[in-house]
Simulated assay, not measured.
Amino acid sequence: MARVALLSNPRSTGNRAHLPRVRSFCARHSDVFHYEVESVDQVAEALRIIARVKPKVLVINGGDGTVQTALTELYCGGHFDGAPPPVAVLPNGKTNLIALDLGAGDDPIATLERVIELARSDSLADHVVARELISLSGGDHEERPVLGMFLGGAGLANSILFCRNKVYPLGLPNGLSHVLTAIAVLITLLLGIRAAFLPPRARPVTVSVMKGGAIEGRYALLIVTTLERLLLNTDAKLPGEKRGALQLMLVEQSPVALVRAIIAGVLGKLGKSVVAGVHLGRGDEIRIEGDRSSVILDGEIFQAGHGRPIVLTQTAPVPFLKLAA
Rank of each mutant, 00 (worst) to 15 (best):
Glu300Tyr: 00
Val32His: 02
Val87Glu: 08
Arg243Phe: 01
Ile50Met: 11
Asp81Thr: 08
Asp140Glu: 12
Leu250Trp: 10
Ala88Trp: 00
Asn233Phe: 13
Ile193Pro: 03
Leu230Ser: 06
Pro317Gly: 10
Ala304Gly: 06
Arg28Asp: 14
His306Gln: 14
Leu190Glu: 11
His29Cys: 14
Ile288Cys: 05
Leu230Val: 05
Ala125Ile: 02
Asn15Ile: 04
Ala245Lys: 13
Lys272Trp: 02
Leu6Thr: 07
Val32Tyr: 01
Ser208Pro: 00
Ser254Trp: 03
Glu285Ala: 13
Asn233Pro: 00
Lys211Asn: 15
Ser177Glu: 02
Ala5Arg: 01
His34Phe: 08
Thr66Gln: 01
Val87Ser: 05
Gly299Asp: 05
Asn233Cys: 12
Glu142Thr: 13
Ile296Leu: 13
Val59Cys: 07
Ser137Gln: 08
Ser121Ala: 12
Ala276Trp: 00
Ile286Gly: 08
Ile263Val: 15
Ile301Asn: 11
Arg23Ile: 10
Glu285Trp: 00
Pro309Lys: 05
Phe150Asp: 04
Thr188Asn: 09
Leu176Gln: 06
Val59Gln: 09
Thr181Val: 01
Asp140Ile: 02
Val37Cys: 11
Leu100Phe: 08
Glu113Met: 10
Gly217Pro: 10
Val32Gly: 03
Gly78Lys: 08
Val185Thr: 14
Thr69Ala: 14
Lys322Leu: 15
Arg11Gln: 09
Gly192Met: 04
Lys94Trp: 01
Ala182Glu: 04
Asp140Tyr: 01
Leu170Ser: 01
Met149Gly: 06
Lys272Phe: 02
Gly148Leu: 03
Glu252Cys: 03
Ala261Leu: 07
Ser294Ile: 02
Ile263Gly: 03
His178Tyr: 12
Ser12Thr: 03
Leu258Tyr: 11
Lys56Ile: 00
Val278Ser: 13
Gly152Arg: 10
Ser135Arg: 14
Ala245Ser: 14
Ala154Glu: 11
Thr69Lys: 13
Ala5Gln: 05
Asp106Gly: 12
Met249Ile: 14
Thr181Asp: 06
Gly14Cys: 08
Ala99Ile: 07
Leu198Asp: 06
Ser39Asn: 03
Ala88Met: 09
Gly240Asp: 11
Ser135Glu: 10
Leu246Ile: 13
Thr66Lys: 03
Val259Thr: 09
Val87Ile: 06
